[in-house]
Amino acid sequence: MDAVTVTDLVVDRGRRQVLNGLSFAVPVGQVTGLLGPSGSGKTTLMRAVVGVQQVRSGEVTVLGRPAGSPDLRSRVGYVTQAPSVYEDLTVRENVRYFASLYGMRSPEAEVAIADVGLSDGAGQLVRDLSGGQRGRVSLACALVGCPEVLVLDEPTVGLDPVLRVELWGRFHALAAAGRTLIVSSHVMEEAGRCDRLLLLRDGDLIADSTPTQLRADGRSEDLEEAFLNLIRAREDVAA
């Protein structure tokens, strides 16, 4: 069963085409990594999945409904790359507000705060936090809604390695509980932590694979090198 299916998706931003007719499916209950360099179209694709991106053509279906449908709004969580929380509220006030939007209460808010490791600083104003901590508040505000599909744009940027490992553990626990996660990253090192991988480059889908398969196809144990080999192979075909 697929949580998200994308068919022939074309997106323009300004005069530039940023997604060139992508088609793929994201299975339920897995962590799907969206990998690619900065500017490859990752954020645009994620925005299309949560239904805030104007698209030129193609279809995006989430949990069997067109992306952005009103009844998907309580079932899909989205965490933008730049933390989008209120700087002039405390951590707890932020998470409680988003909890109330999803029909949750303060116990759920406390759990979400604990999940991102911010229980000790829950009473602090977000403006007094570091960039990485703000990102975790933003993540907690999505986790608190217990969404079935969680779309996370570069959630681990700037985090210390211990916390990064903890968060990836958290993502896999959510997936094991039947949730679907789409996690973008520009760090190939994180690709190995995903169940499935989508590799984007210049608006094209280079690979829709698993880490194991990617290593085999790219003839390298190192995912970064495997990715490079795939791109070179494509360019050879194109030339």
Partner: peptide, 13 residues
């Protein structure tokens, strides 16, 4: 400008 509006529009609000 902070992105909270776009985020709110993806919630049931």
């Amino acid at each position: 400008t902070s992105g909270t509006l776009e985020r709110l529009l993806t919630t049931p609000l």
